[in-house]
């Protein structure tokens, strides 16, 4: 995990997603798992021949479900609003507890 890595955005969402288009194999599990359905499959193939998951760019709650269902270690990185993150224990475990509460399937 890239500790302390930060990104900036104009959006006011609780969460933000980054998908590594090289590592993603396009299995679609994250798309199925995401409660607010903010991940979709790309139309284009990446240069390894996979269609890959892409983030809609808004509406992410930062629940982390997509991360846990994804079979690739680093294909997905979930970001959360800094304020909330600092309040949380700092343990990534907090994310998964939340994942259960907002699991929709």
């Amino acid at each position: 995990m890239v500790k302390g890595e930060r990104i900036e955005t104009k959006k006011q969402d609780r969460g933000w997603l980054r998908i590594d288009g090289e590592e993603c194999k396009g299995c679609g599990l994250c798309i199925e798992a995401c409660p607010p359905k903010v991940i979709a499959m790309s139309e284009e193939l990446n240069h390894f021949g996979y269609r890959t998951a892409i983030f809609a760019g808004a509406g992410c709650t930062g629940c982390g479900v997509c991360f846990m269902v994804c079979p690739e270690p680093g294909a997905i990185t979930v970001f959360r609003a800094a304020v909330r993150h600092v309040e949380a224990s700092g343990h990534a475990n907090a994310g998964i507890e939340e994942a259960i509460s907002c699991a929709s399937n």
Partner: peptide, 8 residues
């Protein structure tokens, strides 16, 4: 707003 890595 700032974001930090929650899951990676």
């Amino acid at each position: 707003q700032e974001y930090t890595v929650a899951q990676g």
